[in-house]
Design a binder for these strands. Structure first.
Lengths: 197, 197, 197, 197
DNA sequence: GATGAATGAGTGTTCATTCAT
DNA sequence: CATGAATGAACACTCATTCAT
């Protein structure tokens, strides 16, 4: 009976998963612009026509893949966080969560970087993406209220508490950076110095 | 006859300049992936075949355009800087130089952002690019030596003293950020807090 | 159990009827060439695969639809006709029958016009179609025998007593023609003048 | 020098002519819907990509081909006509002109029939086409004014004086009709009987 | 130096049809 | 009986690049 259920696992899921992995892998290997439908299909071991059984078109495939990755990242960020912990410790936890997640899924991260600079980028609802990162935003707001964090423009704060992680994780920008716990901790202390009052 | 030669030489330069502008403009308007040789040629008012008189191929055109922009940025960064000024003031000058340059040439900046995430990115010699930014690097090194700036990994320092400008200037990342002198000054104070000892 | 079988048979008929209507509707709306199997199936509310339960292939579906329409037209033409009525009155009755039928089923008519100019046209047996129009042909032959109608080539007679109706009913050819009873009667008088001795 | 001029005949014209002929030939042989860009290119002995050097897209190729044929037909219709000839004789001349032209270019005629029932048909300006047939229209109007031709709806008159030619020339509609001078003359006499007062 | 013409290779996408369920 | 899944073949079209002039 168990085996029956396993075999019932619809081909849907298998193919769709293969497509997701193939898409991410190919974008990592040959870049976004060069990742054609035909090549993705070949990598996934299916016919190009089959992609259109699962997705409306290429855009749908790429955007869906992006959203899934972003959602997973959002989930990972909010782990092991509670309201009772001091602001600094909470931010540090988020900081490490992000580094850990990116190191565990480097090519997922690379995919999002590529996607964000592609023409498809404008098709995703930024507000919806931001939803995934609400926990982080809330902590920062609490810090401002408690006069622990500088009360400056949101964008500026994020440029120092979020983007440095992105930059340091980006192989293209920081080719020789070793993401050791020490280095990550050091980087966080700079970020904290930047935003703390 | 002399005039003929003169006009021939002039024409060259005009064409090459037109190509540069057309390339940057088109990448800004329709994105990197959609900027085909044919469209660039049309925008520049020349035949696609003529591009191959000036550049070996499309890659050469795009990379050359990138390098020229980067070189100009490097030059702009080093302006009004001398060894006698205090480290903080020097860095602040560089910081404002960069903001001013990006605001004066927003689509040059946008081009480099697009280029950096294209498949052509890997073709440029990073070391050569870094050369353009030597003045900035020297100042930071002096700061470390003088125990004014934290003695940490290069990449980390740059993530806080260079990339925040890039992030804040990127319309996609900071859609609603107003690059007012006040905001830029504030952002610099955070950057300085991050790296100063 | 009995009811079950009944409902199964009914369902068949419903599907086939839905397919007929969907085919005609789609050809009217998007044209013959653009009417794919997938779209017809969607319009009929069934799976594309189901079409192949009822028809051998696309060609079979389209040809069958054509033949059914033609048969209905043939039946309509022969209504209210008998041998005792004078030739002219009989022809006039047929003439009006045809106009009435076309106006009652404009998209059936449009379908046949589209079909006739499609690659599938050559697949239908012209003789079989002609069978449907035997009554009309018989009247004309009687008219010739009775020396009331000119004794000329069949094709010529038909070009004046049948095709004018088709032409005048064709929206593409006669965009601004109003098929009022007066106009139809007038048109018939021209047709009669053409063929009468 | 003559040879020089001959060799100067731009490749343009040769290819464009080949494309015209290939398009018409293919539509005659396999029908409008089945005439793909690739097949037309192959028939013309060029690469599919080359078609896009001469025409904006498939639609442009097909519409241009149609317009050229229609224009030629229009020119042919108006030959050997003057205002002094009696109405009937003039119409007869036009009638024969049309038959002659269609018989001289049967596949040009077949192409227009196919085109008119294609989705591209709606893209041509009907008024512009009608311009080509102005001479014929003028003669009919003169006939009405002189009370020689019945004063009825334009569409009706055309259904009897123009379309019979089209019908009789259409192999699909009149498979076994022999377009002998006698038959054409006979057909004209029916047409005249239809429209004359 | 400059280009119009030409193209093989590729693009994303839809097609009619089959088949296991 | 009915269908979701799957696909090879075809579709219209664009690509970067070459070459004769």
């Amino acid at each position: 009976m168990f085996i029956y259920f396993r075999s019932m696992r619809t081909k849907d899921d298998i193919k769709q998963e293969a497509l997701f992995e193939a898409t991410v892998k190919l974008v990592n290997e040959i870049g976004f612009a060069a990742s054609s439908v035909a090549k993705i299909a070949k990598e996934a071991g299916i016919s190009p026509a089959t992609i259109y059984v699962y997705y409306k078109n290429k855009e749908d495939l790429l955007v869906s893949t992006y959203l899934e990755i972003k959602q997973n990242l959002g989930k990972a960020l909010g782990q092991n966080i509670d309201d009772t912990t001091p602001i600094r410790d909470t931010l540090k936890q988020v900081w490490f969560n992000m580094f850990d997640h990116i190191r565990a899924h480097p090519n997922h991260f690379h995919y999002t970087e590529q996607f964000a600079n592609s023409p498809f980028s404008s098709l995703v609802n930024k507000k919806e993406i931001e939803k995934y990162f609400e926990p982080l935003i809330m902590v920062i707001m609490r810090g401002i209220e408690q006069k622990i964090i500088k009360n400056v423009d949101d964008n500026i704060l994020r440029a120092f508490i979020v983007h440095p992680i992105v930059v340091l994780s980006n192989e293209r920008l920081c080719q020789d950076f070793e993401a050791s716990p020490d280095n990550i901790e050091t980087a966080f202390s700079l970020a904290w110095d930047a935003i703390k009052l």
